[in-house]
């Protein structure tokens, strides 16, 4: 299958659990020893999607206000942005709105925007009603999902939804790649290694 690299940028206030979501997403399904990366602020994970493999290159950003101005460098060239807020912190939802606005103005065209309300395991101290967030997401045609990185709820789904919204490559190309690959067993490399 064709592998497509997709840059995904994580935005959101500090402390809302951006990196927890990614760590959960990346680590749940991989051996811990598989991808020796530098650190958790840049992680990758490959997931199948239709005829393609999507390799997510996940760029975490620092959420503190003082780093806000650096964000454009991180979201440029992104295929998708995940904007995370904390359902127990109304402020983080306000920040989210600022990010949405900035992306619309300065972000890449066609960027897929996903809104993730994290910490939904803490429903009893919720400050952001799900309905409100959902309506906001719909108003900007964004993906919306509530997650719990801690309990591994909806994390995978979040990225699946993103995958589905990524427009497939030109059909012809995909197909040719595909048929090309299907004709032979995929992993000569591994065999070679043993």
């Amino acid at each position: 299958m064709a592998i497509r690299e997709l840059k995904v940028c994580l935005l959101g206030d500090t402390g809302v659990g951006k990196s927890s979501i990614v760590c959960r997403f990346v680590q749940d399904h991989f051996d811990h020893n598989i991808s020796p990366t530098i650190g958790a602020s840049f992680l990758t994970k490959t997931v199948p999607c239709g005829n393609e493999l999507h390799k997510f290159l996940i760029w975490d950003t620092a959420g503190q206000e003082r780093f806000h101005s650096l964000a454009p460098m991180y979201y440029r060239g992104s295929a998708a942005a995940v904007i995370v807020y904390d359902i127990t912190k109304l402020d983080s939802f306000q920040t989210l709105k600022k990010w949405v606005k900035e992306l619309k103005e300065h972000g890449p065209e066609d960027i897929v925007v996903a809104i993730a309300g994290n910490k939904n395991d803490l429903g009893d101290i919720r400050e952001v009603p799900m309905k409100e967030a959902k309506e906001f997401a719909e108003s900007i045609a964004a993906i919306f999902i509530e997650t719990s990185a801690r309990n591994a709820v909806n994390v995978e789904e979040l990225f699946q939804k993103i995958s589905k919204q990524i427009p497939p490559l030109q059909n012809a190309e995909v197909e040719s790649n595909d048929s090309f690959k299907l004709t032979r067993p995929p992993n000569p490399t591994t065999r070679r290694c043993c």
């Binding site: 760029w59 620092a62 780093f67």
Partner: peptide, 10 residues
């Protein structure tokens, strides 16, 4: 613990 960009960039 795992540190994300919130901790790394500073």
């Amino acid at each position: 613990r795992m540190y994300g960009a919130d901790d790394f960039l500073p």
